[in-house]
Design a protein around this nucleic acid. Structure first.
Length: 550
DNA sequence: GTAGGGTTAG
């Protein structure tokens, strides 16, 4: 079943793309480099002053990689399995890209045919360096493969977003008769995480159960993550509860699952419970917890957790600090956000974006502009989100000229490609400032087909600035795109009502009836005695109705 | 040797 389900994926273009010819290997400059070293063996013979041959393995153990690489060149054709094994292990460990490539080139140049173990090391090395094409090239050229070789290449594809390729490889592995182990399953489940992956994930899960791997920590954590990201939090929780043992990764996976689905209270509750049960937390756990607190806008809890992070042994990192910036901003305290931002020893573009978004959402246009200038001064490359934050900051702060200047600077340059969302920000900027007619002209000149979101922004502006003709036009566009959306009819009706055009109000209401457009009734909530009570408009029947105005 | 969980926008 799995096979038939995934067959179409294997035949897809992505798979076909992976079988296209690779680049010439090794690159000519690398060969030149290696051959220089190879020729130094003859110079040793001519010059007895050169140091005696060293043992590659001991150089590697002593962490003298560069000397070992040089020695490899000098030894010419004589590097054996142990030598290559030690060299590759150190290259992988130290992320030594150039040295790793030299070792591989040396194998080719000296016509050394690596056994399966060394070929697998090469695959692992290229996967770690992020050179997936090279990893595939070595893997595809292997006459013999084992479960580790397959897992290494599957995990490389899964982590690089080449999900269908990873699943195709998994199937080929099964066909070859090699049975997956816990690492293989964990990587394959990673490939099933994300849009459209659930169907495949469930099938891999059934294989996991049949193979008795469900209780392995890494498989369990992958299953929890896969189900949670597919919105199946109950299934994720079921897998988590069934795990015979837990560790920080599996606990974090389920907490993250709740937080990412917006079940923030549940995430916080589970964190407290697991911590009582002795769960160790690390920066990743705290990132999920802080994300949940952002959703709850719970400043007190947020400060307590921040204090706990500072006091605990947990080494904070840039991702955690980014989430703290966001949490403080969503809890309404930009002063704390900025304090975290200022204290950071290193920042990523996300740190800047989180701070800019904070200022923007609070309507602090001047602070947005100042921070954006600082960002440019520090040579940090903005991305699409930076520009979204800056443009919407100008919009919320009423900085029309500044916003337009930045937008046209963006369109002229090649810093960030302007997308429809950026155009949407300008529609909002003009509309908010009351320049509704200009906003409509701007929409008509856009290089994109306007979306419902764009017309919705314009309609909102028409309502705020009582512009009936443009409002009618925008509403008509929305009726064409989404005729059953009651919200658009109601806003247009309100625009007419504000202008005293009561006949038009009646017409819109009649239109709604004709098209059987239903508006969801207004609803509000209140929490009493740890119970959530919901009240609807005209609700006559709720037991607490009499008390709600107390 | 191969493994699993994380941040900004909409």
């Amino acid at each position: 079943m799995l096979r038939s389900c995934l067959r179409s994926s294997i035949c897809s273009n992505r798979w076909a793309a992976s079988t296209k010819p690779y680049f010439a290997w090794p690159p000519p400059n690398l060969l030149l480099h290696i051959s220089k070293h190879l020729s130094s063996e003859s110079s040793r013979r001519k010059n007895p002053q050169l140091p005696p041959l060293s043992d590659l393995k001991s150089l590697c153990i002593e962490d003298r990689l560069k000397e070992a690489i040089l020695e490899m060149g000098i030894q010419g054709l004589r590097v054996d399995f142990d030598g290559y094994d030690s060299l590759l292990a150190v290259c992988i460990n130290q992320n030594a890209v150039r040295e790793g490539q030299r070792v591989h080139s040396h194998m080719i140049k000296t016509r050394y045919f690596p056994p399966v173990f060394l070929n697998t090391r090469l695959v692992i090395m290229y996967v770690k360096f992020g050179f997936l094409e090279d990893a595939r090239r070595v893997f595809d050229g292997m006459s013999e493969r084992n479960v580790v070789s397959w897992t290494a290449v599957i995990s490389g594809c899964a982590r690089r977003g080449r999900r269908y390729e990873a699943l195709g490889l998994f199937l080929r592995m099964l066909e070859t008769g090699i049975f997956p182990n816990e690492f293989t399953f964990a990587s394959t489940l990673t490939a099933c995480t994300g849009p459209g992956g659930l169907e495949h994930g469930i099938q891999v899960h059934s294989l996991v159960i049949k193979s008795n791997f469900e209780s392995h920590l890494c498989v369990g954590s992958s299953l929890v993550d896969m189900y949670a990201k597919a919105g199946r939090i109950q299934e994720a929780r079921r897998v988590f509860d069934k795990l015979p043992e837990r560790n920080v990764v599996s606990c974090t996976a389920i907490i993250t699952g709740y937080a990412q689905l917006g079940l923030d209270e549940k995430a916080l509750e589970l964190f407290c419970q697991l911590q009582k049960e002795g769960m160790e937390s690390n920066p990743v756990t705290y990132v999920s917890l802080v994300t949940a607190l952002s959703g709850l806008a719970a400043l007190d809890y947020g400060r307590q957790v921040h204090t706990q992070i500072i006091r605990s042994e947990v080494q904070s990192n840039v991702v955690l600090q980014n989430s703290l910036i966001d949490m403080y901003s969503k809890c309404g305290s930009l002063t704390y956000s900025r304090r975290v931002f200022n204290s950071m020893p290193e920042r990523t573009v996300i740190s800047w974006n989180a701070m800019l978004v904070g200022y923007s959402k609070h309507g602090l246009g001047q602070q947005v502009l100042e921070l954006f200038k600082l960002m440019q001064k520090e040579d940090v490359k903005p991305d699409r989100i930076t520009l979204m934050a800056v443009l919407s900051g100008c919009s919320h702060g009423g900085l029309v000229h500044e916003g337009l200047d930045i937008f046209y600077w963006m369109v002229r340059g090649q810093y960030v490609e302007a997308e429809i969302e950026h155009y949407g920000c300008i529609v909002d900027l003009l509309g908010r400032a009351g320049l509704v007619d200009k906003a409509l002209i701007f929409i008509k000149q856009m290089p994109f087909e306007p979306t419902a979101g764009i017309w919705d922004t314009l309609l909102g502006a028409c309502r705020a600035h009582s512009n009936v003709p443009v409002g009618e036009y925008a509403a008509q566009q929305l009726f064409n795109i989404d005729p059953q959306n009651a919200r658009n009819y109601v806003i247009l009706s309100n625009i007419f009502a504000a202008a005293g055009r009561w006949e038009d109000v009646i017409n819109v209401r009649r239109l709604m009836k004709e098209k059987t457009v239903m508006k969801e009734p207004g609803q509000s909530w209140i929490k009493l005695d740890r119970k959530l009570h919901a009240f609807y408009v005209s609700d006559q029947f709720h037991s607490k109705k009499g008390k709600k105005y107390l």
